[in-house]
Amino acid sequence: MHKHLLVTGGAGFIGSNFVNYWHEKHPQDKIIVLDALTYAGNRQNLINLENSPNFFFIHGDICDRPLVDNLLEAEKITTIAHFAAESHVDRSILTPSTFIQTNIIGTFTLLESFRHYWQKQNQPSAYRFLHVSTDEVYGSLKAHESAFKENTPYAPNSPYSASKAGSDHLVRAYYHTYNLPTIITNCSNNYGAYHFPEKLIPLMCINILLGKSLPVYGDGQNIRDWLYVKDHCSALDVVLNKGKEGETYNIGGNNEVKNIDLVELICQIMDEIAPNLPVKPANQLITYVKDRAGHDRRYAIDSSKLQKELGWKPKATLESGLRSTLQWYINNQQWWQPLLSTDYQKYYQQVYGTFK
Rank of each mutant, 00 (worst) to 15 (best):
H2Y: 09
H4Q: 10
L6D: 04
G12S: 03
I14E: 06
N17H: 01
V19P: 00
E24S: 10
E24G: 01
E24F: 07
K25E: 03
H26E: 13
P27T: 09
K30H: 15
V33I: 06
L34E: 06
T38A: 07
N42Y: 07
Q44F: 13
N45S: 12
L49G: 01
L49P: 06
N51L: 14
S52W: 04
F55V: 06
C63N: 15
P66Q: 13
D69Q: 11
N70M: 05
I77E: 02
T78C: 11
A81Q: 00
V89P: 04
L94F: 10
P96I: 05
T98G: 07
F99V: 09
I105M: 07
G106Y: 03
T107W: 05
F108L: 10
L110E: 01
E112N: 15
H116Q: 07
H116T: 11
Y117M: 11
W118E: 03
W118C: 05
Q119F: 13
Q121A: 06
N122S: 10
Y127E: 00
R128H: 06
L130E: 02
V137I: 15
K142G: 03
A143S: 14
A147D: 13
E150N: 04
N151C: 05
S158M: 04
S158N: 03
P159W: 05
S163Q: 02
G166A: 08
Y174R: 07
Y174A: 03
T177H: 14
T177D: 14
N179K: 15
I184M: 02
T185C: 09
N186D: 00
S188A: 13
N190V: 05
Y194I: 06
H195C: 15
N207A: 08
G211Y: 04
V216T: 12
Y217W: 12
D219W: 08
D219M: 03
G220R: 11
N222F: 13
D225L: 11
W226H: 05
W226P: 02
L227C: 01
V229Q: 00
S234V: 07
S234L: 02
V239W: 02
N241F: 12
N241L: 15
E245V: 15
T248W: 00
T248I: 12
N250R: 08
I251R: 08
K258R: 15
N259M: 07
L262I: 11
Q268R: 14
I269Y: 09
N276R: 15
P281M: 15
N283H: 15
Q284S: 15
T287I: 11
G294S: 13
G294E: 14
H295S: 14
D296C: 15
R297I: 09
R297C: 12
R298Y: 11
L310V: 09
G311P: 08
E319T: 12
R323M: 13
S324N: 10
L326H: 09
N331W: 04
N332I: 03
Q345N: 06
V351D: 05
K356A: 15
